[in-house]
């Protein structure tokens, strides 16, 4: 069953078309990696999936979920690096989307935050300050927050940017585990080797879709050989 169905999507940024003719679908349990160079339209596509921008034409159809039920892991901003907040404050803020105007967190939401901190192995850090954590730990906190916002789907924007190789591998392992638990993953990346190692499906874009299909198909396609060969960074 497809969770997201995109048809003939055309997306623009500042009135300039950055992505056109895009059709793809994401099924429950998929691990889709969106590949592309900088400026290829990845970020714009992500914003469209989150419902932050409207497509110029075409449609994005969601089944069983709304835009706001995607758990989103954005890239870290400068503001966050020295932000005075405890880990549990950050994780709890992931539950806000569903709550409407209620001013305080309910017991249920605190339970949910606790559960997700446990899944990511950061519950012992709950009272710690976010700014004192290592990059990998911070990323887990943000992932726990994203899990609080969703039960079905995570959208990860370059989840390993700025992490060292050991932590990067650890992060990919965690994401894979979440996927195996039944959470659909959409990951934006330009790390082709990791994408082909972990993802089940690949969407490769450069203003137009270059490839969409399973990872196996991708590996035997021209684009992959070209990319994995000379062009790879």
């Amino acid at each position: 069953m497809s969770l997201i169905n995109c048809k003939n999507l055309e997306l623009a940024y500042d009135n300039k078309t950055v992505l056109s003719d895009l059709s793809f679908q994401v099924n429950r349990g998929d691990y889709l990696c969106v590949l592309g160079e900088n400026g290829s339209g990845k970020t714009t596509l992500m914003k469209a999936l989150l419902g932050l921008i409207k497509p110029v034409s075409g449609e994005i159809r969601f089944c069983c979920a709304k835009h706001s039920e995607i758990g989103y892991l954005p890239q870290q901003t400068d503001i966050q690096k020295d932000f005075p907040a405890s880990v549990s404050e950050v994780v709890l803020s992931g539950t806000l989307g569903k709550r409407g105007l209620k001013p305080f967190y309910s017991k249920k939401e605190k339970e949910l935050a606790k559960k997700n901190m446990e899944i990511l192995g950061i519950y012992h850090l709950a009272k710690q300050s976010y700014q004192n954590l290592s990059g990998g730990q911070q990323q887990r906190v943000l992932l726990a927050r994203a899990l609080c916002a969703t039960t079905s789907m995570l959208l990860l924007d370059e989840p390993v940017a700025g992490l060292d190789p050991v932590v990067t591998a650890e992060m990919y392992r965690i994401i894979k585990e979440l996927n195996e638990k039944g959470i659909t993953i959409i990951m934006i990346s330009h790390d082709i080797s990791a994408a082909t190692q972990y993802a089940s499906h690949i969407l490769h874009i450069h203003h137009k879709p270059l490839f969409f299909g399973t990872t196996q198909e991708y590996l035997s396609s021209n684009i992959a050989t070209k990319f994995l060969g000379g062009d790879q960074k």
Binding site: L50, G51, L52, K66, H67, S68, I70, Y72, P74, T77, I79, Q80, F83, A85, E89, V90, L92, S93, G94, L96, G97, P103, F104, Y105, L142, R145, A146, A149, L155
Partner: peptide, 23 residues
């Protein structure tokens, strides 16, 4: 401020995440 405290925190900490979750 007290009524919207949790939202103000979320928006201060991470605007793009908050927008994505529908705030």
């Amino acid at each position: 401020f007290v009524f919207f405290y949790t939202k103000i925190f979320a928006v201060t900490f991470d605007e793009s995440f908050s927008r994505a979750t529908g705030i």
